[in-house]
């Protein structure tokens, strides 16, 4: 039971880390290597609001998410759209976006180091135990998990049932055909990128409740997020959530039953196996 619940909590954390990138890569086709920095920036904002203004990190999301949405929309509009326009093929865009977002990740780390210094930051919020089934769990992790479920569920419902969501999914499947049936691909992509950024920053604010972060740590989150979305299947919210939960439970089980030293090795092994047997991820459809 402990393994299951701890694993689920960890899976929720992973989902928060990866959901945003899935929107950005799945729909807007930007393999955003600066994703982790956006996450850390969300964490910084939560830290700052909590320590300076005594605003609790969950309430702070009301500010952090919209600001991140606007920032990411601007980033897409002014820095990435020129690349999208000039790209002749999907491959060319992939190369350009890797280069550009790699540069951005450097720039973001530089800005955060300059603004906040390079030191560690963390704070105590809801770091109390919650008793469930005879074991204790950190309240802040439970809160983050609940919000991960809410955010993931809301995104899935919105993508599946709303008109705009349908447009986004159409773009995810095939931008050229989507524009034929009257979808404004450019707007949909900008929306997906901005929304993805907002979700990532939200995730950052939530994980900052229990992770110790510093300005340079973003790349670790980027790598984790890449692994999760690829494992789940690009452009599919369900896949990301399922992959996150599988990884969370597998890592916890290995840590508790086998050896904590092998958790990451096990996670990557699982990832490699999934790709070998389902080359397009758990929920991915083979694309040409």
């Amino acid at each position: 039971m402990f393994i299951l619940i701890t694993g689920l909590l960890l899976g929720g954390t992973y989902a928060l880390i990866a959901l945003g990138l899935n929107l950005q890569y799945g729909v807007a086709r930007i393999m955003n290597l600066a994703n982790g920095e956006m996450l850390v920036a969300g964490g910084f904002a939560a830290f700052w609001l909590y320590t300076a203004g005594q605003i609790n990190p969950v309430a702070a999301l009301i500010v952090i998410a919209p600001v991140a949405f606007v920032v990411n929309w601007l980033v897409y509009r002014f820095m990435l759209q020129p690349l999208v326009k000039r790209a002749k093929s999907r491959g060319a865009l992939e190369v350009d976006s890797i280069l550009a977002t790699f540069g951005m990740s450097f720039a973001f780390v530089g800005i955060m180091t300059w603004a906040f210094g390079g030191g560690y930051f963390n704070y105590a919020f809801l770091a109390q135990p919650l008793e469930m089934f005879g074991s204790s769990y950190a309240q802040n992790r439970v809160v983050a998990f609940v919000l991960a479920v809410v955010i993931g569920g809301a995104l899935w419902l919105w993508l599946t049932y709303s008109r705009v969501g349908l447009n986004l999914r159409a773009v995810a499947v095939n931008p050229a055909s989507a524009s034929l049936v009257g979808v404004d691909v450019r707007r949909a992509s900008a929306l997906a990128f901005a929304l993805g950024g907002a979700v990532t920053a939200t995730g950052g604010a939530l994980v900052s409740m229990f992770f110790t972060l510093d300005a340079s740590v973003g790349v670790l989150f980027t790598m984790k997020a890449l692994i999760i979305i690829i494992m789940g299947g690009v452009g599919d919210i369900r896949g990301t959530i399922v992959a996150a939960v599988i990884l969370g439970i597998a890592e916890t089980a290995v840590a508790r039953l086998v050896d904590p030293g092998l958790t990451l090795a096990a996670a990557y092994l699982l990832f490699l196996l999934v790709l070998l047997f389902k080359p397009a991820g758990l929920f991915g459809k083979a694309r040409g």
């Binding site: 550009a100 540069g103 990740s105 450097f106």
Partner: peptide
């Protein structure tokens, strides 16, 4: 003291100007 920031910006400039 701002190496990484400027490096990132230089990078972006290269990507935009040198397809």
């Amino acid at each position: 003291n701002q190496t990484l920031l400027l490096l990132g910006i230089a990078f972006l400039v290269i990507v935009y100007l040198l397809p």
